[in-house]
């Protein structure tokens, strides 16, 4: 199952809630303002690392670039995808939960 999050974790607790629901084998994709969730040195880094054994984390590259960020700003094991990769994630997962 794919989960998408579009809010900064400093604004809304979508990431925290999503992590209660995302199960082994799930994918989480950060888009829009949620790209800040997977940057280095935040209070959320540990939450992400604690789940990386079970869950794969992705971030939408164009949203990252738009906000002046790149791979060097990300915490470890975050895969950057473009819109084509976003489409593939939706197609590859039987269902998508968009945490709005």
């Amino acid at each position: 199952m794919l989960h998408t999050i579009n809010k900064s974790p400093f604004e809304k607790d979508s990431l925290t809630t999503c992590l209660r629901y995302a199960q082994k084998g799930a994918s989480i994709l950060f888009i829009e303002d949620a790209v800040y969730a997977c940057t280095k040195g935040t209070q959320f880094e540990k939450d992400i690392h604690d789940h990386q054994g079970d869950i794969k984390f992705y971030v939408l590259g164009p949203d990252l670039e738009a906000r002046g960020l790149d791979n060097s700003n990300l915490t470890t094991n975050i895969e950057i995808v473009d819109y084509k990769g976003f489409v593939k994630l939706v197609a590859d997962n039987e269902k998508t939960q968009n945490w709005l």
Binding site: R20, Y21, Q23, K95, T96, Q97, N98, W99, L100
Partner: peptide, 18 residues
């Protein structure tokens, strides 16, 4: 609890979020 609601997520096919 979320641990049980998870099962509902597993069974569901179409998700609408508002």
């Amino acid at each position: 609890p979320a641990s049980d609601l998870k099962n509902l997520f597993n069974e569901s096919e179409v998700f609408f979020n508002f």
